[in-house]
Simulated assay, not measured.
Amino acid sequence: MQEHLLNTFAQLSDVLQIELQPEFSVIDYEGQSFIIISIESDDRFTIRLNEVDTVISGFDSTKLFNIKNAMRIGFIPIDGKKGLLGFGFSYCDFIFFDENDFCFVEFKLNAISSAERAIRKRRKEAISQLKNTINLFDDKLAKSYAGLNLEAYVCTPEFYPRLDASWRELAQDFLEEYGVPLFETNDKICK
């Protein structure tokens, strides 16, 4: 899959990261997704920013996407200044792939309202960003994902209701339209 992507996106070599840790986390920092290199304390973490390991304050363990049981992951930030697609049209935050799955991920962890209408709006916004990204990759890759299973993730705050009727309806519609399972979780356990 890596070669297929490199042949399709000229600038991919500038953003593609290969991660070999069995467990790691991804965080959104200033509108960009980064793999956390290390967690220094309850308040500080390290990311690689402009090829320099940088310690950042303000660590919040509830605002992570965690990848577990990994062997070799290809990580591509999509949105943001250093993302594959940069700022502009609304795409998901990052994608990652291993030998089994190709995953699209959108962060919606900064929500502050638990009102049902606000939750539904944030979920729909996230799904729209995932759809835009899937459509672009389907077009660029001619829907050829090297036999990998496609998955999509919406990362939401802990206070969002999980698997409620509203979410199940959105996930079912997404599956019917794209043939891609949609999950509302902040964790991926690789096979």
Rank of each mutant, 00 (worst) to 15 (best):
residue 164 D to T: 01
residue 160 Y to K: 05
residue 166 S to Q: 11
residue 164 D to Q: 02
residue 171 A to Q: 10
residue 183 F to S: 08
residue 161 P to N: 06
residue 187 D to F: 13
residue 165 A to D: 14
residue 167 W to G: 00
residue 181 P to C: 05
residue 167 W to S: 01
residue 172 Q to G: 03
residue 163 L to Q: 11
residue 174 F to M: 06
residue 174 F to P: 04
residue 165 A to T: 11
residue 188 K to R: 15
residue 179 G to W: 09
residue 159 F to Y: 05
residue 180 V to P: 07
residue 163 L to D: 13
residue 159 F to K: 03
residue 180 V to C: 08
residue 173 D to F: 11
residue 180 V to I: 15
residue 169 E to M: 12
residue 160 Y to H: 10
residue 174 F to W: 10
residue 183 F to C: 04
residue 181 P to A: 09
residue 181 P to F: 11
residue 169 E to V: 12
residue 161 P to E: 07
residue 177 E to W: 02
residue 176 E to T: 11
residue 186 N to Y: 04
residue 186 N to W: 03
residue 167 W to I: 01
residue 181 P to D: 06
residue 180 V to S: 08
residue 175 L to E: 09
residue 185 T to N: 13
residue 187 D to H: 12
residue 171 A to K: 08
residue 170 L to S: 12
residue 166 S to A: 13
residue 181 P to E: 09
residue 170 L to M: 14
residue 173 D to M: 11
residue 170 L to A: 10
residue 165 A to M: 10
residue 173 D to A: 12
residue 167 W to C: 00
residue 187 D to S: 11
residue 163 L to I: 05
residue 174 F to D: 04
residue 180 V to H: 08
residue 177 E to I: 08
residue 161 P to F: 03
residue 167 W to K: 02
residue 187 D to K: 14
residue 188 K to W: 14
residue 182 L to W: 04
